[in-house]
């Protein structure tokens, strides 16, 4: 139990620092890679551990590094986790490449809409233009979807080679 606790503590600390420092310093067209979403998708495929509180911890780290209103990431990251878990439990249950793509696709869309929406709400009084009317938002979203789907496909085949728990594509009829 304690070993698991320290393992998660280290994993989430490293993942948060990696996302903040490494992903942020990549060339602009690679910055939309979201290691948290990719980690989350594969974690949901492999494990049933409840990471809700660990996402809160990661949000706490994000909050004291980033300048968003303190508490924003502590709510936002667990919300992403809950959304992805909901999809994983109810719609994408078969550990196939398509379920991995589906989870990544919807998690990225949820992440972007909630993130941009929340910042729009925070800055509503400043008269910031509605984010969905901005070309930049749609381009970033498109880039994020393409990048994260590509990275998750690579990771899927990497894990597929290591483990037989992932199915290459959709479940074949009659295959149990």
């Amino acid at each position: 139990m304690m070993v698991k606790f320290f393992w998660y503590l280290l994993l989430f600390s490293l993942l948060a620092v990696w996302q903040i420092s490494f992903a942020g310093s990549l060339p602009w067209y690679l910055r939309e890679i979201n290691f948290f979403i990719i980690f989350l998708v594969f974690f949901l495929e492999f494990s049933h551990d409840n990471l809700f509180w660990w996402f809160l911890f990661a949000g706490f780290i994000f909050d004291f590094y980033y300048a968003a209103p303190f508490g924003f990431f502590m709510i936002f990251l667990p919300a992403v986790f809950l959304f992805a878990k909901f999809l994983s439990l109810n719609f994408f249950t078969n550990r196939s490449l398509y379920s991995c793509w589906g989870l990544t696709f919807f998690a990225v869309i949820f992440y972007y809409f909630v993130f941009y929406g929340a910042f729009y709400a925070i800055k509503f009084s400043v008269g910031e233009p509605l984010f969905i009317l901005e070309k930049k938002f749609w381009l970033s979203l498109l880039l994020a979807i393409i990048l994260n789907l590509s990275v998750s496909s690579l990771v899927f085949y990497f894990f597929g080679a290591l483990s037989d728990r992932l199915k290459p594509f959709f479940i074949v009829k009659g295959n149990k």
Binding site: I20, S21, A23, G24, S25, W28, R31, Y65, Y66, A67, A68, F115, Y116, F119, Y120, E128, F131, K136, F137, S140
Partner: peptide, 11 residues
């Protein structure tokens, strides 16, 4: 770190 986590944020 360089702040690049959102296209909306002024940061």
């Amino acid at each position: 770190a360089s702040e690049a986590f959102s296209g909306v944020s002024e940061n």
